[in-house]
Design a binder for these strands. Structure first.
Length: 297
DNA sequence: AATATCACCAACCGCGACAGC
DNA sequence: GGCTGTCGCGGTTGGTGATAT
């Protein structure tokens, strides 16, 4: 015995919506709200199932939907969010006002996935499929766990945004050098996301409700001439009430604040600063989103 | 000009989560 | 705690227009 259909199929219209149907749906929702989607079609005089009405409204008719092609910046954001969130299109859409999950999903499947593949990046893992070495040619990269990659990419994006904010702050202090608008937007995206529930879930929660802390304050290592410092870090203060810019980023050191957590299996990350360091090594060489620049500019 | 193939995207389907009883 | 109804999500499909052969 199969699953019962979501609604009576017989007598219901399917396929593309007509303008008259759209008008009926919009008029009804404007006057009454959608209420129960199941009963809406009957009340609105539509020969559609409630599910179809909900889809039409949320993906097409909603007044706050931003139609039109995605900008390069939006595409970049989708890629970065996908690296963090995976195929959670609704979560990605929640960070992109005016864009629907369906739209983003279509963008990913038709454009972005292929684009990443064409530049040698696995669109599911966001991992380089090969590393080319001038001496021995392409090398296979050892696989990293998805959560590790996502965490590291997420942290990388945040670090990048914070570093940029610091730079911008110092630039803004010098009124003779106005900031390019695109740079500002880019930073804002990440810091906004970082302080959203998505960022919160990565900072504070894993499935067992335990902190996965990698917070040995003395942990330090040197990689490629940079000093990596690991340890707990206070949340960046970004509210307008605190206009004090963050301290200037040290060009010789990377602060890998490892107090972040993840929502996947807690077995995948051990509670140690060594793990946090491993995250960096694991991710080094692919945490820079600049590879995308050439494809968007 | 006709046909095949590709790309895009709106819409559908099935499943899981959740709330109310 | 189990059942049922509803909703939302992610994967997939199918129609349509564009492009290639």
């Amino acid at each position: 015995m199969g699953r019962a259909p979501c609604c009576e199929k017989t007598g219901l219209k399917r396929g593309p919506w007509t303008q008259e149907e759209d008008e009926l749906l919009v008029d009804y929702i404007k006057k009454n709200g959608h209420g129960s989607w199941r009963s809406l079609p009957k009340l609105a005089g539509l020969l559609r199932c409630g599910k179809s009405c909900r889809l039409r409204w949320t993906n097409y008719l909603r007044p706050d939907i931003k139609r039109g092609p995605f900008s390069a910046e939006e595409e970049k954001l989708v890629i970065q969010l996908h690296a963090i969130l995976g195929n959670r299109w609704a979560a990605i859409a929640a960070q992109m006002p005016g864009r629907t999950d369906n739209e983003i999903k279509n963008l990913w499947n038709t454009h972005l996935r292929k684009r990443l593949l064409s530049i040698g990046i696995d669109p599911q893992t966001h991992e380089l499929t090969t590393i080319s070495s001038p001496l021995v040619g392409p090398l296979k990269r050892p696989p990293a766990s998805p959560s590790t990659r996502h965490m590291a990419q997420w942290e990388s994006a945040r670090l990048e945004a914070e570093a940029r904010l610091s730079m911008e702050s110092s630039i803004l202090l010098a009124p003779s050098t106005p900031l390019p608008p695109n740079k500002k937007t880019n930073t804002d995206y990440f810091l906004r996301i970082w302080h959203s529930e998505v960022g919160n879930s990565f900072r504070n929660v894993n499935i067992k409700g335990e902190k996965v802390a990698c917070s040995s304050p003395a942990s330090q290592a040197s990689v490629s001439g940079m000093t990596i410092e690991m340890g707990p870090k206070p949340e960046p203060e970004l509210s307008s009430s605190n206009p004090e810019p963050e301290s200037e980023p040290d060009h010789k050191s990377v602060h890998l604040y490892a107090g972040f957590t993840h929502s996947s299996s807690s077995n995948e990350v051990e509670d140690s600063s060594d793990t946090a360091l491993q995250l960096f090594f694991d991710f080094q060489g692919q945490n820079d989103m600049s590879f995308l620049e050439a494809h968007f500019n």
